[in-house]
Write a protein that binds this DNA or RNA. Structure first.
Lengths: 347, 347
DNA sequence: CCTCTTTTGTCAACCGGTTGCCAATTCGGC
DNA sequence: GCCGAATTGGCAACCGGTTGACAAAAGAGG
């Protein structure tokens, strides 16, 4: 590489090499370090010289090379966002709001997906970490020790998961679940089911536990109906077991499953909410489009994405302020999928 | 910075500094260059030495610093993806498939959003470009000259847009539109409308032009109904004008608008497909959830994302092979939102 | 007019890898 | 046992910015 000075005319490659501060220095008749300071240390350099440098930079079409800057400073100007499944509509708002918040702070979002696999997630997180200033882990499957390990190396914020000593942002499902049970109880339901999500999922456990406790406290009977995958197909697959369980209302781990359940009901001629009431979780895009429109516990996803990003940026800047755990209240959105039991056609 | 050798015990900062090849070199008793070669030049180094180095790297928990590698080599291992609006469900599959394709090739996806503004898009593209190996521009609003300028600096692939001399991947809407018109004609429609998208949008123009030509060729009457924004609200806002125009079937610029239209119809008591048949574009998540389920021209978004990423990777590797323009056929997905005109209740 | 400060800009080291070149070492063949 | 070819590993330059230290220049005060 010592003699890439053979930069005579690289006519084979048609890309023009990027403009550097050395080019600017030459044009402006100053040293490269002066250029560097002129461009990012306001006041450090004489106003006239600074003007000359800026002029030269502009005329040459200079773009700072983030990698070159990152090397000595350690700041890359990027945030890593790791989600398990990008095609899950749940993440749309989250990703969007995180991108906006990062962008507003002059940072760029680096996106990666872990394919619902803890192994892939660990590998991806480790690959991503050296390249970013901080990491956002959404509904991670890693265990506490692995998370603590990652958090020791670089700032890290968890979304939808809590680990002692690591900052996190998650919805507080209690108010939403309370409203849900109020709503179901008011409609006359006495036996409620929970169509659960992946066994290893933290939000799944949390939703179930809160639901369980609150149902008990109200004297409702509550049963967990295990399902496979947290997708529309997973929800549809659960229908037979839901019907067999004798309940009149079901809360699903997430909207995707609720949507699948709704579709299966429709295909099977099961009236919703006449025969079965359905409540989802998250309020994803599409929840209001179905017939009946889905009643669901809305997680403030955009707010969560924004709060998590803000927290991570604070962590990066070293402002270790703020509470370690932020819980944003979830609320019930009442639409059409809940009604009185035996509302219309009972089999 | 010369004396950051004050690395005695940085007890104030709790982050441990990253492991470098110099640390490994010391542990393994070789020079840093040997470490570098041992780790990425298979065979260049004695097998025993290589083993020793790998062992040391593993025990120290070494992670390569991508920035440090990018500086001399110019390869960052990242791909930039620029979309106008991340919350548009249209992009979910695209982003997901692009991420998967990039990841499979050992690259990381960097995501940015341009807020539907050409100005923001130019700024973002220029900010992103030095940090990535190549850029994917989705439905860009930049003009041909700006795109050519960006393409001159780094590999660039366009999605849903064509510019001479720049590789691109886009759906070929012709077959889908032919099927749509066949379908509408078979149902008995004679007058079709197009609820159009943003005036400056390339896909919008293309869809309209193909629709126009094909409708003419079939002797159907066709009218463009301008709408504002390409969102559900935009579609809903178009309803009055659609009804006023005397048509019996409407094709919308995208599914979001169709979904909005459907909802407005429902709210207004307009029977679909009895009074009005609706066909969307894209087949986004949610299109099959409505009642009636939306008949739509499906763009193979996942395939497009994958093809575009593959093309970009080829471009980066210098394999300037492959056709400059890839057009993936779109096809009509028949669901429930098209029926015979005056099918049931005519006002 | 000559110091003492205060600006202003340059020098050079450094971030963490990569790689061309060369010297040392190993090895086979005669 | 000696020589030449093939391996193996180290040196040092370099990627493009950043920044502490310092010298030169300019302004202030006596």
């Amino acid at each position: 590489m010592d003699e890439q000075s053979a930069t005579g005319e690289p006519e084979s490659c048609n890309r023009k090499p990027a403009v550097t501060i050395y080019d600017i220095a030459q044009v402006a008749g100053v040293s490269p370090s002066t250029v560097s300071r002129a461009l990012n240390k306001p006041g450090r350099i004489n106003a006239k010289t600074e003007q000359r440098v800026r002029e030269a930079a502009r005329s040459l079409g200079y773009r700072l090379n983030p990698m070159a800057r990152a090397l000595p400073t350690g700041r890359t100007g990027t945030l890593g966002l790791l989600v398990s499944d990008l095609t899950n509509p749940l993440y749309f708002d989250l990703v969007g709001s995180a991108e906006r918040a990062a962008s507003a702070a002059g940072h760029t979002l680096v996106l990666a997906e872990s394919r619902e696999s803890a192994e892939a997630e660990r590998a991806t997180a480790e690959r991503l970490q050296p390249a970013v200033d901080g990491l956002l882990l959404v509904a991670t499957r890693l265990d506490d020790a692995e998370i603590a390990g990652l958090a020791a190396a670089k700032p890290l914020v968890l979304v939808n998961r809590r680990v002692p000593g690591v900052p996190s942002v998650a919805p507080d499902v209690s108010p939403g679940i309370a409203q849900t049970l109020d709503h179901l109880q008011a409609a006359g339901h006495r036996a409620v089911g929970y169509l659960s999500g992946p066994a290893g999922s933290w939000p799944n456990r949390e939703r179930w536990e809160v639901l369980f406790e609150q149902a008990l406290a109200r004297g409702l009977s509550i049963v967990e109906i295990p399902a496979g995958v947290p997708t529309m197909d997973g929800g549809a697959d659960g229908l037979r077991r839901v019907l067999a369980s004798g309940i009149t209302a079901v809360v699903t781990f997430n909207d995707l499953m609720a949507l699948g359940l709704l579709r299966a009901c429709r295909a099977g001629g099961i009236d919703v909410p006449g025969r079965l009431s359905v409540v989802g979780f998250d309020d994803i895009f599409g929840a209001e489009l179905t017939t009946p429109a889905l009643t669901t516990v809305r997680s403030p996803l955009a707010a969560i994405g924004e709060a998590a990003t803000a927290r991570l940026l604070a962590e990066i800047r070293g402002e270790d302020g703020g509470p370690p755990v932020v819980a944003l209240p979830a609320e019930l959105v009442v639409r059409e999928s809940v009604g009185p039991p035996d509302g219309s056609g009972r089999a």
